[in-house]
Deep mutational scan, measured.
Amino acid sequence: MEVRTIKVFTTVDNINLHTQVVDMSMTYGQQFGPTYLDGADVTKIKPHNSHEGKTFYVLPNDDTLRVEAFEYYHTTDPSFLGRYMSALNHTKKWKYPQVNGLTSIKWADNNCYLATALLTLQQIELKFNPPALQDAYYRARAGEAANFCALILAYCNKTVGELGDVRETMSYLFQHANLDSCKRVLNVVCKTCGQQQTTLKGVEAVMYMGTLSYEQFKKGVQIPCTCGKQATKYLVQQESPFVMMSAPPAQYELKHGTFTCASEYTGNYQCGHYKHITSKETLYCIDGALLTKSSEYKGPITDVFYKENSYTTTIK
């Protein structure tokens, strides 16, 4: 009895394709271990004539594949690729409408935090270190965002349907971005203890939790000093293409032309909904596939993004 075979390709990165001759009487799992086709788990399936010449994702289970996976995804987590594939199996079914010149995501599976993050990423200057993220990001900007969303979920250790947080998501993504040249110098002034300067680099240099107003941050924000008295913390120097200011959701007025974009969060910790506000020729609110415009805006804002380049204080 002759062994019926077909020729397929296996890959971990969709760049390096490895030619395989597979036995049609055995499952993919018996031949390769966990195997995925377009995100779908085909591990328990036997090869079919229609699979001839198709590319299958496999887990990096030998040295060659491990090197290829690390170079593309910059992670050695053995569960990463499987999590990416199972997320992709959902995100490829989502709709990605162009809204006001940006790629958004039609609401499904509690994905409003991903839509808000995706919209924000198209408006701030950011370059990702893992080629996987950078490639998928370019495709997302062009309207094909399924891979990018699935990668975000995998890097953030999230599953489809789980509630997510924009600030946490951005923080994970910033860790995989090139923020080497970003720098922030802060000064804390206390009447009792004097003053202390701190220099922050990388992710810490672009994120701040405690106030939404970048102007206020430049002037000074009140913080408790270690001595128990009130101290003032203010920005001395900022070198970065953008800054992200966050605070627990509270009524906040966004003035046209003073910011790049913002995240609105309605609801409580267990259950809520994100919308995205962007400042173009007027203010726009993007909620999944829905767009509304207004000249002014007041609502429960939790993150505001500002364009920056270089700032030095005039406070002496």
Rank of each mutant, 00 (worst) to 15 (best):
A87I: 04
I152S: 02
M170Y: 00
R139G: 08
L235N: 03
Y28M: 11
S263L: 06
C182H: 08
Q238H: 07
A142V: 13
Y72E: 04
G33K: 05
G143K: 05
Q230Y: 12
L59A: 14
S279V: 06
L81S: 00
T312I: 13
L179I: 00
C149L: 07
A154M: 09
S240Y: 01
F242K: 01
R139P: 05
A40R: 10
N268T: 13
K7E: 11
T169V: 12
K183D: 00
C156D: 00
K233C: 14
L290V: 15
V206T: 01
Y234A: 07
T312D: 04
L290I: 13
R66Q: 11
C261K: 00
E281M: 03
P248F: 09
G267Q: 15
A40N: 15
P248S: 05
C261E: 08
E162S: 07
N178Q: 12
V42T: 07
Y138Q: 15
T192I: 08
D165S: 15
L291C: 15
G29Q: 08
A150C: 09
L65C: 10
A289N: 13
F128V: 03
L290M: 13
L59Y: 15
S104P: 00
K275T: 15
G82F: 14
K233A: 12
K219I: 06
Y297H: 10
Q134T: 09
Y84S: 04
K307C: 09
A205F: 03
Q98Y: 14
I286F: 06
P130S: 07
S86I: 06
C227W: 05
A145F: 02
M170L: 13
G53A: 12
I277N: 00
T116H: 08
K92Q: 14
T199N: 06
P224C: 11
V42Q: 09
H51G: 03
N110E: 03
K191R: 11
F70L: 15
T199A: 13
S213I: 04
Q123N: 07
T10H: 04
S86W: 01
N309H: 00
L291A: 15
C261H: 04
V67H: 12
L126H: 00
M245W: 01
F242C: 03
K46E: 13
N16C: 09
V221P: 00
T232P: 02
Y208G: 05
F70E: 07
Y208P: 03
L151I: 01
